[in-house]
Design a protein around this nucleic acid. Structure first.
Lengths: 195, 195, 195, 195
DNA sequence: AATGAATGAGATTTCATTCAT
DNA sequence: TATGAATGAAATCTCATTCAT
């Protein structure tokens, strides 16, 4: 009774596992149902169609993802600290959930354009957090005033995303969280020697 | 020798067009054959299977891509100039070929994991060029000695790739090449105020 | 006793509405339940299965249909008058109930063979009335003695049924009852000029 | 080589057999393919979808049906003779092809409304033949001048159709063709005693 | 009597690949 | 070399019915 709709979450968790272990194209509804311990038809009591499972999965997971990151960021004063927190939290949250990392970095990208557009909508929440840090850093004088918002955002997201993807494709062999500091330094100071 | 296997190239060009215009999942072999002006069966005289078309497409196009970039880079002395050339050339080459930009940034990413692994193999050639620039910069003292090769490479590739993808998803509305300078500055100087 | 099982009638009326408005193949049990204001499971307290709803519907409606026609016919002396009454009453009863007309003429015909056989059983009551008129007409000398009972019955039912169906398919645009006289004349006098 | 597309006809003949023997709702595409001796996918080289098989079947068969009837009718002078020929030919053509009779009278009527609308389009060709006979009869003075075209057409088609359907539902036990004369007499002279 | 969440069987259609010509 | 007709495996989703409450 505590959980109002346990089956909804149950099916989403099952989808993460099935997709991570079998790959996007081998994640049939029947496999997800079996993993969730429900009948195939039950899936359709909670989701409109298969695509809806995937979008919901992304929304649920990414929603919590953003929430956790925002909670941590609030505790930081400087934009530089906030940026570090974003990176570190992004890395550690995915490092903690191997299945989710595989699903978001590799499998869900195989979805068709329409699904990807809907996933991008969800991503906007994340990018807004990034934007806030950049803008704040420019206002406090920590960052250059002439930083282009879009380009800077693309650098931050592109770098973090590529770093995680490489880590996943290398079978998550090394400690991702430990790289946060170096990535942060690259963002803040660039390639040149800092005095 | 120049025209030895015209159909091979013909089919690859057809594949680029068909994928760009119809999307990865709507690019059936029969559609590519029609676009190339050959029979379905003829495709299989030149390619082992459908995946082979896509890998070959990527190899051919990325091969020329890398070649052109390397040619330009050779003319530059400093690592910073080389990096700028890499960015600018990457942007301009894709801006020149809208179809190719769509195919590499959006459509080919929908392929399955196996195909993406083979595409990554091809990408290594590009990443080697990046690595050479980074190493050279560290040796000449232009870049910090403690730059992590992999992380720096991921930042460069991740940022450029995300920038191009965003540009493609925005229907290539703005001038991509013009952003090379700003991206370069972000890499070199980071977010902080340069003196 | 009047209101002994109100839900039974309630469900049948709901079925007529749902089938008329959604079509036979879109008349799911859950839709009928909703229209009747009961739960899906409740249906099965009153009907054995879905087919049973449809047969019961036909029995109820056709029972009243036949009763009304028989009541009117009793008042007529001659077979010709009885035949006219049959036609006119058949037309007017369906013209009065658009939903029922759609259900019996179009939708219920899409049912499977087995259901149609059971519907035919119900129809026999109607055909008996027809037979009585024919036999009576032959006995009184109004009709030819050599009329084949089955063929004559098929002509009467086939013509009336086809006339109603065409009228329903034409969206019940014209006044069906007004055609009773002409149809009756066709039966009695045939195509040739009567003297 | 004589037959340009033998598979097309082959599949239609297979569909008639499968539908007649298994019923409309048990006539899966795979069953039709098996009966036709082709692969499931081959069906879709010749037909857009399953509905297209059924419409094509009806068009092909009804087209030949009408053609044959028209050929015979042309040889007759009087409208009465033409009407007799129509009835007799209608009966004998269906009596000759038991499978077709089952399919047209029982099975195809279970199709959904859209398919039935398309079938009705095809039926118009038949009804036009009927109309021509009626009009001709009125012009020559054989039939009453005040015959309503639509009602008369409905009587002819309704009666013939009902007669055939009853015969099919009675397992085609009796000789249908032999009833043509009596049906014709009913049309021409009606129920009353002719002098 | 009444509920309604859960069940699970079943069929159309696509498309990469083959192979006889 | 080139053709293109034929193949056949494989998966989403619906909905009548049940049964624990």
């Amino acid at each position: 009774m505590k959980q109002k709709k346990p089956k909804y979450k149950q099916i989403i968790e099952a989808a993460v596992i099935v997709i991570a272990e079998n790959g996007y194209h081998q994640a049939q509804v029947s496999k997800i149902a079996k993993q969730a311990g429900v009948a195939d038809g039950t899936i359709y009591l909670y989701f409109k169609n298969k695509e809806d499972i995937l979008v919901s999965l992304f929304q649920e997971k990414m929603g919590m993802f953003i929430e956790k990151i925002e909670d941590e960021i609030k505790l930081k004063q400087s934009a530089a600290d906030q940026l570090y927190t974003l990176i570190e939290k992004h890395f550690s949250l995915l490092a903690e959930d191997h299945h989710l990392a595989i699903v978001t970095q590799l499998e869900l990208r195989q979805s068709n354009k329409e699904l990807r557009l809907r996933i991008n909508e969800v991503l906007k929440g994340y990018l807004n957090v990034v934007d806030k840090i950049i803008t704040s850093g420019k206002e406090t004088g920590e960052f250059r005033e002439d930083l282009d918002l879009r380009l800077t955002r693309q650098m931050i997201f592109g770098t973090i995303d590529e770093t995680v993807t490489t880590w996943v494709m290398n079978d998550q062999k090394y400690d991702l969280s430990k790289q946060a500091k170096q990535v942060h330094d690259l963002f803040i100071y660039g390639f040149v020697k800092s005095k």
